[in-house]
């Protein structure tokens, strides 16, 4: 298992280099000089040349790329042009906000999505099933920025119950977290429903009923455990997406998370911050994907035995204690 984790982390390295190359090239080849944005319209050509010289912007592409990688490996992601602060500090300052917001959104989405999905599947074609299916359909098709704006209009402007922007009290979290959770909630619900519908028709569910087991335990212990893998995938990728893709919602609600940080950096051609931010998000996503795979192994004994095949026979008794 440890070997596998180590291998997966090693495999992240080429992915990170690829991500860096792409963002680096995009920032390099996109029109507009950083100096124009940062020094303002009044800056002279000499000022700009000096700025480029100081930041190493007049060197060839490959040299700059390799320099960036070498520095990044040592933990130096450069200095943000706008604040003159190390990029890493800026990212670390804004990431917890995004993390917290995404976590709240995801927990809400998973708990409610799974509950509704299970009920929907067990009571297929009932009123509640049809109702949640329609809601889920709306949920996956709503553009989140529009939903955010509508919620602000309703709850902040018209009703005045919740603050429209910022993140200073728990009340501030409700609207953005809810908006962020919508897609994941709907996706989770649909996946749970379809995966449960399949599972409750399986023979082993009938076996469990034939044992005299109660319906609740049959559904939760026997059917749900088998239905959970695709749900983990959906919830996990949704969470990874929230970490990187909360930019729109953070902008709508003026929240200083990593998404807004990157968007603002792109607008000002703040290349080190864009690169650092995207790289950071990419690492977070890769780690979450790794986590999903590990959760798979935790849940499904068939996948677990793939990781530890071969060793099993020798340390049979010792292993058993740990797996169950």
């Amino acid at each position: 298992m440890l070997r596998y984790i180590f291998k997966r982390i090693l495999m992240m390295i080429p992915v990170m280099i690829g991500v860096t190359l792409i963002t680096f090239s995009m920032m390099y080849f996109s029109p507009g000089e950083p100096a124009d944005y940062i020094l303002g319209e009044l800056a002279t050509e000499e000022d700009k040349a000096l700025f480029n010289e100081q930041n190493g912007l007049n060197r060839p592409f490959l040299v700059r790329f390799v320099n960036y990688i070498v520095d990044a490996v040592q933990g130096d992601f450069g200095i943000s042009y706008s604040t003159r602060q190390p990029v890493i500090n800026e990212i670390l300052a804004s990431f917890p906000t995004t993390m917290k917001l995404s976590l709240y959104a995801e927990i809400f989405a998973v708990v409610l999505g799974i509950t509704l999905g299970v009920i929907s599947a067990v009571k297929q074609y009932s009123f509640i099933d049809n109702f949640t299916r329609i809601l889920a359909m709306i949920g996956v098709s709503l553009p989140s920025f529009w939903e955010g704006l509508m919620l602000i209009i309703l709850f902040s402007v018209v009703l005045g119950w919740l603050p429209p922007s910022g993140l200073t009290s728990w009340k501030h979290y409700i609207l953005p977290a809810f908006t962020l959770s919508t897609w994941g909630l709907a996706a989770c619900m649909r996946m749970t429903r379809s995966s449960m519908l399949e599972a409750i028709r399986e023979d082993y569910v009938r076996t469990a009923r034939a044992k005299g087991q109660t319906e609740f335990v049959v559904i939760m212990k026997h059917a749900f455990r088998n239905a959970v893998l695709p749900i983990i995938t959906v919830a996990g990728t949704d969470f990874a997406k929230l970490l990187g893709g909360a930019a729109v919602i953070e902008t709508v609600f003026s929240i200083n998370g990593i998404g807004k940080l990157i968007v603002d950096a792109i607008n000002t051609k703040n290349a080190p911050l864009v690169q650092g931010g995207i790289l950071f998000v990419a690492v977070a996503m890769s780690l979450i994907n790794l986590l999903i795979d590990l959760v798979y192994a935790f849940v499904d004994p068939r996948i677990r035995s793939q990781y530890s095949s071969g060793k099993r026979l020798k340390s049979k008794s010792g292993k058993k204690a740990t797996v169950s």
Partner: peptide, 19 residues
């Protein structure tokens, strides 16, 4: 069920819970 009357099912491949 399972106590007084028990049933052996047709297909052993699918009758057991893989989890």
């Amino acid at each position: 069920r399972g106590h007084e009357i028990s049933m052996i099912f047709q297909d052993p491949m699918t009758a057991l819970n893989p989890m």
